[in-house]
Simulated assay, not measured.
Amino acid sequence: MLFSPFHSSVQPLPAPVKTQLKAGGFWHKGCPVGLGELRLLAVTYRGFDRRGHTGQLIVNERAAEPLAGVFRRLYRLHFPIRHMALDDMYGPPRGRPADDDVTGSFHCRQAVPSPCSSGTGTGSWSMHAYGLAVDVNPLENPYVGCGQSRDPATRPYFDRSRHRPGMVTRRAIRAFRSIGWGWGGAWTGNTKDYMHFSSTGH
């Protein structure tokens, strides 16, 4: 099968996207970054249908070009991504993918506590609130703690020894590591965030 070549672009957030973020509560006054510090990153990615698609992420301006390089590497690795459109992440809830398997970045919110905890917030900003984190295929790469996840649909993917399409691979980890980003699947202790990559590793 012939694949389209990889393309990427970076641009300031268009006015309709800013409006979408504010209307959906994904950005609000008090967030640790301003809308002017964010960028719209468009990249080619391989879908689970083995075809090339154009995906979009909202990321921190200083991470945009490095992340374009990461997604170029993932594309060359034939690493499949399920959903990566802006409306998949920021559109009206009824229009988002039913499987919620959306690869995304910016979301002005607190860090999510471990599934070991019953809490809903940590009191500290998530790296997503800075646009300096990317969650990849959340269904195949769950956030797990104490043998449980907040999404029961992810349970088949708790066993990381049995690889299936969309699960993070060593080469995918190296792609993010090439720009200095760490992986939540490498955290010590009982909590692992297999979908999560960030500039700090947290």
Rank of each mutant, 00 (worst) to 15 (best):
L2Q: 06
L2K: 15
F6Q: 01
S8M: 00
V10I: 15
Q11A: 13
Q11Y: 00
L13P: 14
P16H: 05
V17A: 04
K18C: 08
T19E: 11
K22G: 09
H28S: 12
H28Y: 13
K29L: 00
G30D: 04
L35I: 04
L38E: 02
L38N: 02
R39C: 09
R39Y: 06
L40H: 00
L40I: 10
A42G: 04
A42H: 12
A42R: 14
V43F: 06
V43H: 06
Y45E: 01
Y45M: 02
R46D: 03
R46N: 10
D49V: 15
D49G: 14
H53E: 04
T54H: 07
T54S: 10
I58S: 05
V59S: 03
V59H: 03
V59C: 01
N60S: 14
N60D: 14
E61Y: 11
R62F: 02
R62P: 01
A63N: 10
A64R: 02
P66W: 04
G69F: 00
R72S: 09
L74E: 08
Y75W: 14
L77G: 13
L77S: 13
L77V: 13
H78F: 12
H83C: 02
H83Q: 11
L86C: 06
D87R: 13
M89E: 15
G91K: 09
P93H: 04
P93M: 01
R94F: 06
P97Y: 14
P97R: 06
A98V: 03
D100W: 15
D101W: 02
D101S: 15
D101K: 04
V102W: 09
G104F: 01
F106M: 14
F106T: 08
R109F: 11
R109W: 09
A111G: 10
V112W: 05
V112N: 09
V112L: 07
S114R: 05
P115D: 06
P115W: 06
C116I: 13
S118V: 07
G119P: 00
G121E: 08
G123H: 09
W125I: 08
M127D: 13
H128Q: 02
A129P: 05
L132H: 08
L132Q: 14
V134C: 01
V134G: 01
V134W: 00
D135L: 00
N137Y: 06
N137R: 12
L139R: 12
L139M: 07
N141R: 06
P142E: 11
P142H: 11
Y143G: 02
V144N: 10
G145M: 02
C146N: 03
G147N: 06
Q148C: 05
S149Q: 05
S149P: 12
R150Q: 10
A153L: 10
T154C: 10
P156F: 02
D159N: 15
R162K: 13
R162V: 14
R164T: 13
P165Q: 09
G166N: 12
G166E: 08
G166D: 07
M167A: 09
R170L: 01
R171M: 02
A172E: 13
R174N: 05
A175Q: 07
R177C: 04
R177D: 12
I179K: 10
W181R: 00
G182F: 10
G189Q: 03
N190E: 15
N190A: 15
N190G: 14
T191D: 03
T191A: 07
M195F: 03
F197W: 01
S198M: 11
